[in-house]
Write a protein that binds this DNA or RNA. Structure first.
Ligand code: FES
Ligand code: FES
Lengths: 149, 149
DNA sequence: CTATATCCGACTAATCTAATCGGAGATGAT
DNA sequence: ATCATCTCCGATTAGATTAGTCGGATATAG
């Protein structure tokens, strides 16, 4: 609960890989081997990203995927949207809108919608560029890492 | 993905019910019937909340649960913690810390930890009082909270 | 022509969540 | 003292979701 799916994790890894190699196409196998990911699964993820025009694909030998947009222009929220659809804290907030069984008597829906909106905003504010920064430079980041007691 | 479990949903409903009836104990059956929730499941949720000293329980007939703290002092984050453990965007951030399979080559862990921290902060900032407000007053905000220990 | 790619839907496997069950211990009412 | 009603708790089953696989189509460089 409240976790990213592996698909999203894989997508972010792949996109960060591609962001570091903007000058040539990288194919699925190459990326999958780099991070030891299941090739078929990664393939489908990349296909979705290509269909959503985050990536551009070229077929055939020497083919593969390249980033179509600058990492600064791609938000984590957008990626989540593409791979899994818009996240929803509870059933009744999903775009395919199956309502919760409790919706008749539910007294917490409106407040939860605000929480949901805050979560979506947060995801939209995080760019792929931020995710791509490697550890050696991540201490320069503007938003401080908050340590929890 | 990125959704609350039904347990959390049920917990919030029950807590909001109890927050509206601070002067007497409400038993599991009563709350379950109010929202048409599975009694046994709700029972276990309330037990956990009682063990965590969010609620107090009294056994026997006329027994039930009462809120131990003011709704302003209870954060959604604390409730999530109690019912499901601290949320983690990816495996390697869980408290039972099973690392991701990709941790050797993973280039996105540090940035994701910051995102994770932001999510936890957000949950800690939301009080039960905010969740309990009905629609007409939900634009008001409250402040002090019980943060995760 | 062929090897290597992307592409796509359908399928199975694995994991996690939701719900149920059985039974022990507390307590107020009769 | 006994009973009915509650909390409490572990174990189990059922259901839903996610992860991963498979088979086969299309595109293209060499
Ligand atoms: S959260 Fe969906 S109806 Fe209450
Ligand atoms: S996210 Fe856990 S290792 Fe990359």
């Amino acid at each position: 609960m409240l976790s990213l799916s592996k698909k999203i994790d894989y997508a972010l890894l792949a996109l960060s890989y591609l962001a570091h190699k903007p000058y040539r196409a990288a194919n699925t196998k190459e990326i999958a081997e780099e991070y030891a990911l299941p090739v078929e699964l990664l393939a489908k993820i990349l296909q979705k990203l290509a269909k959503a025009e985050i990536l551009v694909s070229t077929s055939g030998p020497t083919g593969g995927y390249r980033l179509l947009l600058a990492p600064e222009k791609i938000s984590v929220g957008a990626i989540v949207d593409i791979i899994e659809g818009r996240p929803a804290l509870v059933q009744c907030m999903r775009s395919d809108s199956h309502s919760c069984d409790q919706i008749q008597k539910c007294t917490i829906r409106t407040p939860l919608m605000r929480v949901n909106a805050r979560m979506l905003d947060m995801l939209d504010e995080i760019s792929l560029a931020e995710i791509c920064k490697d550890e050696t430079e991540s201490h320069l980041v503007t938003i401080p890492l908050l340590v929890r007691s």
